[in-house]
């Protein structure tokens, strides 16, 4: 089994529904973006256009973050995802340095506990901010908590363009496998040798 995501860049129009859905679903603190969309400009006027590059943890098959982790907190699971066990993480941030995708974020103990500058955490933040343990490193889990409830990752479900396709790529009947076969999407920075589970249709 290998969970994978295909992102159809032809469809993404940079709305950031995914970016905010991820923040909301995972209650991530300020400055943390498990997923995001980089705005690009291609070409020179008048032959110019906007481009959008959605980024997310690539859940690599050859993850440098797992290799470098001194405690084994970062691990590759049988479902193909890369996960961090917070209780085993010592916050050394080595994994952040080696990740070519900038997908990992450090929960600084001194970080803001509310999004509202100069205010106390609101009701939602009080209820959920504890999900991010201080002095540990966080990243996209392919929305593991949602998947256990039978709900797809927040970025996949919320995408107004339906640009994200997610599933078991080893199941030939799955949509993600069929899409892979049809479009032959490519991985980002594959020259790094990371063997990503995230692919892009250009």
């Amino acid at each position: 089994m290998k969970l994978a995501m295909i992102i159809d860049k032809r469809r993404c129009y940079g709305c950031h529904g995914c970016t905010v859905a991820c923040k909301q679903a995972n209650a991530t603190p300020p400055g943390t973006f498990y997923t995001k969309v980089v705005h690009e400009e291609h070409g020179k006027f008048p032959n110019s256009r906007l481009g959008f590059m959605p980024l997310i943890c690539n859940h690599c098959d050859n993850p440098p973050c797992v290799e470098v982790c001194p405690t084994g907190a970062s691990k590759k699971l049988a479902d193909g995802t890369v996960q961090v066990t917070a209780s085993e993480c010592i916050g050394c941030q080595s994994c952040m340095e080696v990740c070519p995708y900038g997908a990992r974020y450090y929960n600084d103990p001194d970080r803001a506990t509310t999004y509202w500058e100069g205010q106390q955490p609101n009701e939602y933040e009080r209820e959920r901010l504890g999900e991010h343990v201080p002095n540990t490193v966080d990243k996209c889990t392919f929305c593991a908590p949602r998947r256990t409830e039978g709900i797809p990752p927040a970025c996949v479900e919320t995408c107004p363009a339906k640009a994200r396709i997610f599933g078991n790529i080893e199941d030939s009947d799955s949509i993600v496998a069929k899409t892979f076969k049809k479009y032959k999407p490519t991985a980002y920075k594959q020259e790094e040798g990371t063997v990503p589970s995230v692919f892009y249709i250009e």
Partner: peptide, 12 residues
């Protein structure tokens, strides 16, 4: 394929 495996709802 949703429960921890190949979820692909509504994104097709």
């Amino acid at each position: 394929g949703i429960l921890g495996v190949s979820a692909a709802l509504g994104n097709l």
